[in-house]
Design a protein around this nucleic acid. Structure first.
Lengths: 186, 186
DNA sequence: CCATTAAGTAAATTCAGATTTACTTGCGGG
DNA sequence: CCCGCAAGTAAATCTGAATTTACTTAATGG
């Protein structure tokens, strides 16, 4: 098993590149996440990206897809939906991998937009809609994404003072209401 | 006056570059908006960017600043705030210049983030807070930005089917409520 | 009108990162 | 044991864009 670390293992290599990509692409904008940095973190050679994934864009796609699969974020009860989502956002164990971050970053690369939109639709909007189970469920799911993304941006990417750190109770309440009313009838 | 078109006029040149930059930077992510394209649209030479603005980043800053000054978006009445904001978003004459777009794009360039944050704070959050006139006004202003940005993203950048085109009345109402409750007491 | 400075241009330079290439090393089957 | 392919590497290539440079052309003030 000591050996197995150094032993060749394409699947392991592929995985370690993918994992590194998820982390780096979550942290840095696409244009600033170099394959050199990603492969260095993975302990691999930049040329292997081409072998295993085809291109940087394809690697990004695989990374986004993988992290969307990881965190399904499907809520428990419909009544406390708003509060659940807010709690999830504020939970301290928010991993180094962040699909929402990648989603926002893919906004800034023409070549990624349609792919990101497709993944967003298939992996988030559709499942969430199914869970909601109404005619206009997709509209409601879209509303949820809007608030989540806006919150994420001003909490992490352009960190406005009032949105960073512990949230003031009024804002927390307001957010929960937004999420809740996004899916409620009326 | 025929002459004056061809006559040298540094101020005019500077302005035309700035205007072109506002348009292009509103339309394309920073990394994909080349100085070549911008100066071509302005009918100027790429080297002049260096002369008049110093660098691409400085040009972006100037462009963002200029477009923030242009559209003050200060609302009329506090009671109909939510509806006003939604209407503004949906109004057909949304120009080619879009500060919100630039703000989102600057999210994806480490070198732009702090600058964008500062401008956002000074040109939007502070004025809007002043208009609101309460202790926690900045928090409320931040909430408004969140919803506006989320809406913009899924309407324009990652256009979800249910958010493009004419909005369904329920969503329109929900949005107005979000904006309104963002600034209301309670 | 000339000389000096500012404005503008075309082409050279730099640079960094993705992708390719040509090569080396390890591994598993025959 | 060794052949052949798969995995991995280092370095070369390509590309596209920002920035610099060296130069040309216009304006301006004396």
């Amino acid at each position: 098993m000591e050996d197995s670390v150094r032993r060749r293992n394409p699947e392991r290599t592929r995985q370690s590149i993918l994992s590194a990509a998820q982390e780096i692409f979550s942290r840095r904008p696409y244009a600033e996440a170099s394959l050199k940095e990603i492969t260095a973190k993975a302990g691999a050679n930049p040329a292997l990206v081409s072998r295993y994934f085809g291109s940087k864009e394809k690697l990004f796609e695989a990374a986004l897809e993988a992290s969307l699969d990881a965190g399904p974020l499907m809520p428990a009860s419909r009544e406390s939906f708003g509060e659940q989502v807010v709690s999830a956002f504020l939970s301290p164990d928010r991993g180094r991998v962040n699909p929402l971050s990648m989603l926002i970053f893919s906004t800034a690369e023409a070549g990624l937009q349609s792919m990101a939109l497709r993944l967003l639709q298939d992996r988030i909007v559709v499942p969430l809609s199914a869970w909601l189970g109404e005619d206009d469920a997709e509209t409601r799911a879209a509303r949820v994404m809007m608030v989540a993304s806006g919150f994420f941006i001003y909490r992490s990417l352009l960190p406005l003072a009032s949105m960073t750190g512990p949230l003031d109770p009024a804002t927390r309440q307001w957010l929960a209401n937004c999420f809740q009313s996004a899916i409620d009838n009326g």
